[in-house]
Each structure stands twice: as structure tokens, then as C-alpha cells.
């Protein structure tokens, strides 16, 4: 069985927001290390991988590996019934038929305990083996900045070309009617406090579909920073780390004919 108590429902709400438009159903793989989810979007262009460490929960117990097949739309609805600061407990039996969610809040006049149950399903999804990669370029920047850049450029065109060079990282969009490019220089520092970093072994140029990057940017509510890992001709890794775990996205590049 699984019993996992989170100190705030907000974390799950944000995670669902960051995943639900990419995938509709996914297995939450629970084991003693924590809860993991890996799923590809329907077009097999993007993959999302979430990890919640057992240590990130107020209480965590999972006796044996348990895959929970979740319809993310249904879970989103059930989580809408939780207040952000409610204590949230997830429970499932070994048959993994039902996921129960308990929301506890202490208000001024009484303790409120709300219980919800949702049906689980069998999901037969391929798990991909993601090779360990030494990336040629690693860029860390404020997640709000990344959100702004991809949202702005998505107004102009479908794709963005990302160029990492000694100059810094440049995002270029060539739309039919307009184009734009945004350069973030290597030495971008504000009041002595480092906001980001650009590490590069060799120059990288890659092109990606902006609609996915806009989608990934929904994770900005989970972490103040985002890390972009890139090598030529391999999928981009977009990683958001937070106290209780991480969410990572992989996106296949567009390649010239």
C-alpha cells in the first residue's frame, strides 16, 4: 500500500498544471524511494519526467512498487477541491484500483477533513531509457525569464533557434511577418548576486517547437530557476528542481532536411 502525506496540496496542483496539457494519462510509479512519473506526449516529441522524493513528504510509506494509473484530468479536478495550504494525503491499496485523497485544514472555528476518491486505470505505456548525457552547454536562468522569452517569441513564429556561444545564449524566432532575437549575455549579474550561469564546452545551435517550450514553462511556479541542457542534434533537457523533487522535460529537436 501507499500512504504519502504532503504538507501542502499546492505542490501537487502545480505539478499537475505542468503536466496535464502534455499527457492525459500516466502511471505514478510508487516505491520506497518516492513517486515517479514518466510519460511522452501523443506525438512522441516531448517527454516529461517527475520525481518526488520520499523524504519530501511529511510521512511516506510504500511497502512494494506500485504503479498507479492516473487520468490527469480527473486528478486535476479532485485537486481543485483542495486549498493550496491543505495537508494532502494520498492513499492506495495494493490492488491500485482507487486513489484516495484527504485534505486537512485547520480553520479558526473547526478542523476540516475532506476525503475524495478517484478511480485508477491500467495504463500500458512504454517507458523510455534515457541515456546519461554529457551536454555541451548548460544554461541556468530565472524560470520567469525563460517563460517570458518563449511566450514572447511564440507570438512571432512556431519555432525558436537556440544558439549557445561565447557571446551567451540567443533565442531566435523567424516568423512569416516578423522576427526577433533575444540575447542573454554570459556576465548577466545584478547587484553582485548571480542570477544565472552559462557553461559551454562547444557551441550549440538547436531548433525547437515553441509550443512545447511554452508548455514546459508552466513549471515556473515550482522553481525560481530553470536549467537548459543542450548538445547538437540531441533532445533538449529542461529541468526545474524544487525541495521535494524535480520535473524534467525532454524535447526532440527540429532538424533541417
Amino acid at each position: 500500500m501507499l500512504e504519502a502525506k504532503l504538507s501542502e496540496a499546492a505542490l501537487l496542483k502545480r505539478l499537475l498544471d505542468a503536466v496535464k496539457e502534455l499527457v492525459s494519462d500516466a502511471n505514478f510509479e510508487c516505491n520506497e524511494e518516492g513517486i515517479q512519473l514518466q510519460a511522452m506526449d501523443n506525438s512522441h516529441v516531448a517527454l516529461v519526467s517527475v520525481k518526488l522524493y520520499a523524504s519530501g513528504f511529511k510521512r511516506y510509506r510504500c511497502d512494494r512498487p506500485l504503479p498507479l494509473g492516473v487520468n490527469l484530468g480527473s486528478l486535476t479536478k479532485v485537486l481543485k477541491c483542495a486549498k493550496d495550504d491543505d495537508i494532502c494525503t494520498l492513499k492506495a491499496g495494493d490492488d491500485a484500483d482507487i486513489l484516495s485523497l484527504t485534505y486537512e485544514a485547520k480553520s479558526a472555528y473547526a478542523d476540516r477533513i475532506a476525503e475524495y476518491e478517484m478511480k485508477l486505470m491500467d495504463i500500458d505505456a512504454d517507458q523510455l531509457g534515457i541515456p546519461d548525457t554529457d551536454y555541451d552547454a548548460s544554461v541556468t536562468m530565472p524560470s520567469s525569464e525563460f517563460l517570458r522569452i518563449v511566450r514572447d517569441l511564440s507570438l512571432l513564429g512556431e519555432s525558436v533557434r537556440i544558439e549557445v556561444s561565447k557571446e551567451g545564449i540567443r533565442f531566435v524566432s523567424d516568423g512569416e511577418a516578423a522576427n526577433g532575437n533575444i540575447l542573454i549575455k554570459q556576465n548577466a549579474e545584478a547587484s553582485g548576486k548571480k542570477k544565472g550561469s552559462i557553461e559551454m564546452n562547444s557551441a550549440v545551435t538547436l531548433t525547437f517547437s515553441l509550443k512545447y517550450l511554452v508548455n514546459f514553462s508552466k513549471s515556473s511556479s515550482l522553481s525560481k530557476k530553470v536549467q537548459l541542457m543542450m548538445s547538437n542534434d540531441v533532445p533538449l533537457l529542461v529541468s526545474y528542481a524544487f525541495n521535494q523533487g524535480h520535473i524534467r522535460y525532454y524535447l526532440a529537436p527540429k532538424i533541417g532536411d
Binding site: S43, H44, V45, G129, V234, P253, D257
Partner: peptide, 14 residues
Amino acid sequence: KMKQKSLMSFFGKK
């Protein structure tokens, strides 16, 4: 023209 690659061409099934 750019062609969108599939992730399956980079990552193998487990």
C-alpha cells in the same frame, strides 16, 4: 524547411 524529430529516434524503450 525543418523536420520535427521523434524522441523515439533518440531514446530506446526500456
